[in-house]
Computed example of a mutant assay.
Amino acid sequence: MVLDELGTPVVLAPMAGGPSTPELAAAVSEAGGLGFVAAGYLPAGELAARIKSTRALTTRPFGVNLFYPSEPSPTARFSPYIEELSRDYPVGDAKHDTDDWDAKLDLLIAEPVAVVSSTFGCPTASEIARLHAVGSEVWVTVTSVAEARQAVAAGADVLVAQGAEAGGHRGTFIDDPADDLADPLGVLALVQLLRAAVEVPIVAAGGLATGAAVAAALAAGASAAQVGTAFLRCPEAGTAPFMRAAIAADTPTMLTRAFTGRRARGLRNRFMVEHLDAPAAYPEIHYATGPLRAAARTAGNAEEVNLWAGQAHSLAPELPAGELVRKLTADAKIALERALSLRIQGY
């Protein structure tokens, strides 16, 4: 299993939409962790180019993350929202697509990587079997025990337990507004529940920005920690300059559907606050808001663009990715040794 071969229990979170680069994935793998190439929003041809670039930078294992396709949303659900936005912002076509799922899966069968992970849903048993047949492990992002059991039944090798603290999109299989009434599970609670429910290894994700947090996840039963926001200020990341500055500030985060039609955690800004009732309609709203987000990025306007980040974002250091992996590893070891020492002393 790939997790057993790593030099450190640090996994790079696949951050689609800009921050993910071959350089970042390779640097994490070269430092002994597991780098990931984010395939979300990329056509299969571009993904192939990024995989090739990553292989040119490292001979170590790395993974590719895919977005599992969502069902089309009824037009009546999102059209009033898009009409409202169009009065003040440039908007695009609210289209539905599968994010090139079939073509990307075929690519990964032809050009296997060590790990293929999925977000927003679980591949079918037959799709997982195809990936297993070419030697790839399959990891599935889950947010509940029910999703975990579904993934294990389909043949998943590893579960990525995404806690509510995580930045970016919630990895829920179905984004149901009715579930908003329930508190989403934090990462440590989720890891404990999954550890009691399933037998496969667990990778913890969500708000893990320091070595001490990595140690806590390992102590709770995870085999590794997936870290994303903490890498956003690394020079290898494709993070926009104004986003790098925003990450370092002590800005609160919140969950929103305003930008994409799927719940995601980001730095709270005016657009999110003004559209608290945005409907659940992904990827239709994602495509519709593309022009307004692009305009805000060009202008460096942090109030009208999605700034995905986890709850511990202000702790993200400005370090090369390899150095950050080594720091997380060393600090985790110190934290675990300190916890054990306190236990021995009777505290």
Rank of each mutant, 00 (worst) to 15 (best):
E127P: 01
A212L: 08
A281T: 06
R149C: 08
P9G: 09
D176T: 11
S53F: 00
V140A: 04
A299I: 04
S314E: 03
Y287G: 06
L12M: 12
F78G: 05
E284M: 04
S126G: 00
R55K: 15
M1N: 02
G32H: 03
L107N: 05
A27T: 12
P80R: 04
Q311S: 09
A299H: 06
R270M: 08
A125L: 01
A312R: 13
A213V: 10
L42F: 01
G290F: 10
A209F: 13
T298L: 11
K95F: 00
W308V: 01
A161T: 03
S118L: 07
W101A: 02
Y282V: 05
L159D: 10
E127S: 01
A38L: 07
A321K: 03
A25K: 05
A110S: 14
A133N: 13
A309L: 05
P317E: 07
A94F: 01
G45I: 11
L34Q: 04
T54H: 09
I51T: 12
A76N: 13
G171H: 06
T172I: 15
A237M: 09
G206N: 14
Y347P: 00
L255S: 14
P241C: 08
C234V: 07
R195D: 10
G346S: 11
K104I: 00
P235N: 12
E199K: 09
V91N: 02
E5L: 13
V113P: 02
K333C: 01
E318H: 13
L34R: 07
V203G: 07
S70A: 15
G346K: 08
S86C: 06
A25C: 09
D175G: 12
G322D: 11
A295F: 01
L340T: 06
V113I: 05
A103D: 15
A189P: 15
A38I: 06
E199P: 01
C234Y: 08
L42Q: 12
L3G: 07
L47Y: 07
A39N: 02
A249Y: 00
A280H: 14
L85I: 13
R257M: 13
E137R: 10
H275S: 09
A296W: 05
S53N: 12
L24Q: 12
A217F: 04
L24D: 13
L185C: 12
F78K: 08
I82Y: 01
A230F: 02
Y287D: 05
T239F: 08
T210Y: 05
P19N: 08
E30P: 10
T75H: 12
A258I: 13
G18T: 11
T251Y: 01
T329M: 00
V187L: 06
T251D: 15
W308H: 06
A44N: 07
L57F: 09
L342Q: 10
V191T: 08
T172G: 14
G33M: 03
Q162I: 10
T289Y: 06
F120P: 06
D93K: 11
L276T: 09
A217E: 09
G40S: 10
S341H: 10
A48V: 03
L57E: 11
H286F: 12
E30N: 15
P74E: 09
F242T: 08
L276C: 02
G228N: 10
D102A: 14
V115G: 04
R265A: 04
L12I: 11
E30A: 13
P184W: 13
W139C: 01
L340K: 07
